[in-house]
């Protein structure tokens, strides 16, 4: 009966129209204030550099991308490796990876301990983990800065007990940046691991002990494999903001211990090399995207193996 089919089709069309109308404001805002500007950035990365900052629109050039890796020697005009950029790129990746591992080493036992508490206590522990996560990142970085500064409580305490005479320079080092990153992103590791541990069936652990496994073997062969999705999610959640960190290295690293975020900002500020800054931004985006793709692959591979 065609009238019935038409009616169903009209209903379907109305549903689709309503759906797009409802989504439009959110999607348009995000396109306007995020996706759109990012596309502009992509375009800028392949434009020629303007003399006083900015770009010469319409003048195509791959100098920006090339400058990420190599630069022209000002004296003999030969191409040499862009040491400074590559060093900062390497530092960013290294710091982000170490941060991920360190938060995992602290975060997993913490999440496990919380997940094995009685239910009412668990939720209080999780509130304790959540509050710092939602607390101003700048303030938390400030707190670490205060702790590590030459006039800070740690140095004062060490001088007071007589271990040292003059303050140790802790601030503005890679170590300070690393400590700040671990401190700031630890909750992001605990949250997903906790939620996958909370769903774990502890009968599996009992079965493990029943079959002569020791505590360590139970942990390695039973607990960790069954919360692998949480561990992967936590690692990605920490790695992505850590590699793109800007505030933490700026506050704790001072001017010299830069990460990619600071280098990018520099190109749009004093550096006045917008195409290079844009290319570096896209590089950072690509690293983040690669991490995300890895995550999606890893979690969907898991779905398949548990599919049946």
């Amino acid at each position: 009966m065609s009238s019935l089919t038409q009616q169903a089709a009209a209903h379907q069309a109305a549903t689709v129209r309503r759906r797009w109308l409802l989504k439009a404001p959110a999607l348009l805002t995000i396109i306007l204030a995020s996706v759109g500007p990012l596309s502009v950035m992509l375009v800028y990365s392949i434009m020629a550099k303007g003399s006083f900052g900015g770009v010469n629109l319409g003048q195509l050039s791959f100098d920006g991308w090339m400058n990420v890796f190599v630069e022209r020697d000002p004296f003999d005009d030969t191409l040499v490796l862009a040491d400074a950029n590559l060093l900062i790129l390497w530092r960013s990746i290294r710091l982000a990876l170490i941060t991920t591992i360190a938060t995992l080493l602290v975060g997993f036992p913490t999440a496990y301990y919380i997940a094995t508490r009685p239910e009412h206590i668990r939720s209080q522990w999780m509130l304790l983990i959540t509050i710092p996560f939602w607390t101003n990142l700048l303030i938390r970085t400030f707190a670490i800065m205060g702790l590590l500064s030459n006039q800070g409580p740690i140095n004062n305490f060490l001088i007071w007990i007589g271990v040292i005479d003059t303050p140790i320079q802790m601030l503005f080092t890679d170590g300070a940046v690393l400590l700040g990153l671990v401190y700031v992103y630890l909750p992001l590791m605990v949250l997903p691991i906790y939620s996958s541990l909370e769903r774990m069936d502890f009968n599996l652990v009992e079965a493990g002990y029943d079959l002569y496994a020791t505590r360590l073997k139970v942990l390695w062969h039973i607990v960790i494999p069954s919360c692998k999705p949480g561990i992967i999610a936590g690692s990605i959640l920490v790695f992505i903001p850590a590699i793109g960190a800007y505030v933490t290295p700026r506050v704790l690293g001072g001017g010299k211990n830069m990460m990619m975020g600071n280098l990018i900002e520099l190109q749009f500020g004093q550096g006045r090399n917008w195409p290079l800054g844009a290319a570096l931004s896209i590089c950072l985006l690509l690293i983040v995207t690669a991490a995300l793709i890895f995550y999606i692959r890893a979690s969907s591979a898991k779905d398949i193996s548990h599919g049946h």
Partner: peptide, 23 residues
């Protein structure tokens, strides 16, 4: 749509900030 909604979560803040600055 889902990717768009969550897009601001993924892009490093400094990158968004600078592209907004330019535009």
């Amino acid at each position: 749509s889902y990717a768009l909604i969550n897009q601001p979560l993924i892009v490093p803040e400094i990158v968004t900030a600078i592209s907004l600055l330019i535009v």
